[in-house]
Design a protein around this nucleic acid. Structure first.
Lengths: 110, 110
DNA sequence: TTGTTTCATTGCAATATTACGATATAACGA
DNA sequence: TCGTTATATCGTAATATTGCAATGAAACAA
C-alpha cells in the first residue's frame, strides 16, 4: 500500500527511520557533504555542483531543513544554507546508539 | 520521475544512500534491533514480534539480506537469521566517516 | 518602474516502496 | 503418502518519492 505503519513501532524506531531517510538519496548526501566542505555557506551553487535542476535541489533542501539538519538564511536574492550543528549531533547520537548495539551476543548462529 | 539519477553521483555517495535506505523503514530497524537483542537466532518470531504480515516481513528480510547486513540459514522448516558482523562493521565505518565530517569549518553563517 | 537574479512552489509524469492475500515450496512427522 | 509448519514468491493496490517545466515571489540594480 506504500503506507508505512508507523503506529506499530516505537518512537525511537520511527525516529531512526526518519533520519535515515535523509541520507537515503545520493543528492542529499552530496548536498550535506558540500555544506561541510565549504567554509563559507553555499546557496544555489549546489545546483551547479550537483547536476540536478533547480527545483529538484530546492526540494531536497526543503526536506533536510524540515528535518532540522540544515538552516537557511536569506541574503539578498540568494539563500545561504548551512549545517545545523546541534541537530546534526543529535542525529549522530541517535543513529550511533543503534549502530553500536552489542554484537557479541548475536551473530553466532549462521 | 521516481528514478534516482545515480550516475551523476560518486560511488561513495550512492553507497551511503543505499545503506541508509536499509534503515529508512521502522520495520527494518525493528528487525535488526531484535536480531541484536536475541542471543539465539530468530526466524519467523519476527512476524509475531513486529505486527506485520508474514509476506511483508519476508520482503524486508530479503532487502536486508541483499544488502549483506544479515545472513539466513535454513534449519528444518524454519530459517534462522542473524547479523552479518563483517558487513555491519563495514556499513558502520562508511556511514560514520560521513557523519564525522569536520564540522568546525561549516555552520558559522546562519 | 522595469528588468534581472535567485530561490520557492505548483502541477504533473514516471518510478519506487509498502503491505498483504493467495499461492508455491520445502522439510518434517505420522 | 498425507497433512502440517515455516518461509518465499507472485500479483496487485495504494501511497511515496524523484525529477523537472512552468510559474510565482522577493530583493536588487538601473
Amino acid at each position: 500500500m506504500g503506507l508505512t505503519k508507523t503506529e506499530i513501532f516505537s518512537e525511537q524506531q520511527n525516529q531512526i527511520a526518519v533520519f535515515a531517510k535523509a541520507f537515503a538519496h545520493p543528492a542529499r548526501v552530496a548536498i550535506l557533504q558540500h555544506l561541510f566542505k565549504m567554509d563559507t555557506c553555499v546557496c544555489g551553487d549546489l545546483v551547479i555542483e550537483i547536476g540536478l535542476a533547480q527545483p529538484t535541489i530546492s526540494q531536497h533542501l526543503k526536506e533536510l531543513k524540515q528535518l532540522g539538519l540544515i538552516k537557511g538564511n536569506i541574503e539578498g536574492t540568494s539563500v545561504c544554507y548551512c549545517i545545523d550543528q546541534e541537530n546534526w549531533n543529535k542525529m549522530k547520537k541517535i543513529l550511533n546508539e543503534f549502530f553500536d548495539l552489542d554484537i557479541s551476543a548475536a551473530g553466532n548462529c549462521c
